[in-house]
Every structure is written in structure tokens, then in C-alpha cells.
Amino acid sequence: MKSNNLHTLLTTPQVCNKLGISNSTLRRYIVNGLLPKGIKFNAQSNVWFEYEIDQFITARINGNDLTTLKELAKTLSNKRPTILTQNLGKALYGA
């Protein structure tokens, strides 16, 4: 389930489908700190990096407890500025 693609973005319906959960369960995971909040894409949409969802799935498969999942969500959120900057640089400069 490990995805190294930092460029792939998933919409809310795609995340729900990949996790096999409903919208309300996704919101509950976010409110409880199990998943990072989505990145605001526009006024009505949020997106997540696919690798974030893949890491969450891997952690669940490995039987990680809630505390570990919350730490993972924080780590993923904290990595976003760096990843967004790197992706923007690649988009602008083709590097």
C-alpha cells in the first residue's frame, strides 16, 4: 500500500472509496485526529495526498493503536508545507 507518488491528489469521494468509509466517518476520523484535514482545493473541495492515505491504511493494517495513528496524522500534516513547496517548484520549473 506504500505510495511514493507525492503528486497524486485524492478528492473526498476518492478517499472515502479507498478507505471504504462514508463521508461522515471520514469527518469523524479528522475531528478525532486520526487523519489530517484535507487541503482546501477550492471553496467546495478538499484533497489529500495519496501517499497520506496509503500510510494511514498501512498503519491500520499493521495494527497501530489510536495514539500512533494520531501521531502519524500530525507528522503527515507537518510534512505538507515542504511537499507543497517541492511540488510547486517542479510545476513551475520542471525540476
Rank of each mutant, 00 (worst) to 15 (best):
M1I: 11
S3G: 11
S3F: 01
N4V: 11
N4I: 07
L6T: 12
L6C: 06
L6I: 11
L9T: 05
T12W: 01
T12D: 10
T12E: 14
P13V: 08
Q14W: 00
Q14A: 13
V15T: 09
K18D: 11
K18F: 01
G20L: 06
N23D: 12
N23R: 06
N23C: 00
S24W: 01
S24P: 02
T25S: 09
Y29S: 11
Y29L: 12
Y29K: 12
I30P: 06
N32M: 13
G33K: 05
G33I: 02
L34A: 04
L34C: 05
L35P: 07
L35F: 00
L35M: 12
P36M: 03
P36Y: 00
P36W: 00
K37P: 10
K37R: 14
K40P: 08
K40E: 15
K40L: 14
K40M: 10
K40Y: 01
F41I: 13
A43V: 06
Q44C: 12
N46V: 04
V47A: 03
W48L: 13
F49L: 15
E50H: 01
E50W: 00
E52S: 06
D54R: 03
D54C: 11
D54P: 04
F56S: 09
I57C: 07
I57P: 09
T58H: 10
A59Y: 11
A59W: 06
R60S: 10
R60V: 08
I61V: 13
N62R: 14
N62V: 05
G63S: 06
N64R: 08
N64W: 11
D65M: 07
L66Y: 07
T67Y: 10
T67W: 06
T67D: 15
T68Q: 15
T68L: 10
K70S: 13
E71M: 11
L72K: 09
L72D: 15
T75V: 03
L76A: 07
N78F: 01
R80Y: 04
P81R: 04
P81M: 03
T82H: 05
T82P: 00
T82C: 05
I83A: 04
I83S: 03
I83V: 14
L84P: 06
L84F: 04
L84H: 05
T85V: 07
T85E: 15
Q86K: 07
N87H: 03
N87G: 00
L88W: 02
L88R: 09
K90A: 09
K90P: 01
L92V: 08
Y93I: 02
G94E: 13
